[in-house]
């Protein structure tokens, strides 16, 4: 299944997870996500998500000037962000457990579910 479609719902969570330990600038965060296994994540999607999380107060940002090159914008997690991370992580675990149960459960259960619906 296309990872991009799956990512849409959980990119916030993934981004919060990779900045939890250490602040990072845009492409740094993209790299962390890709190194962590989300190889197809689009950088623009990540930058947009960073902006949205910042606007929601989950992230803080600061600009680090560079002497010769363009300035870097770093993002760090805020207490609000940590709350959101914890809550969404719990949601995700619940959701994924449910989905695992659906996927790994007995075939008749799936059939009866389909029949009753």
């Amino acid at each position: 299944m296309d990872q991009t479609q799956l990512l849409k719902g959980v990119l916030d969570l993934a981004v919060l997870a990779v900045v939890r330990g250490e602040d990072g600038y845009g492409y740094d965060i993209v790299r962390r996500l890709r190194d962590g296994g989300l190889a197809d994540v689009g950088d623009a999607s990540v930058y947009g998500t960073l902006r949205r999380l910042y606007a929601a107060g989950a992230l803080t940002s600061y600009v680090v000037p560079s002497e010769s090159g363009p300035h870097r914008k770093y993002y760090g997690i805020t207490p609000i962000g940590r709350d959101q991370l914890k809550r969404q992580r719990d949601d995700w675990h619940t959701f994924s457990t449910t989905l695992d149960g659906l996927l790994d459960g007995p075939a008749h259960s799936t059939t009866s579910q389909g029949a009753s619906a």
Binding site: Y25, A55, G69, P70
Partner: peptide
């Protein structure tokens, strides 16, 4: 500004 600040640096890296 919020969306594009730092974009030059990130894209330069890429």
């Amino acid at each position: 500004l919020e969306l594009t600040e730092g974009l030059e640096a990130d894209l330069t890296d890429q």
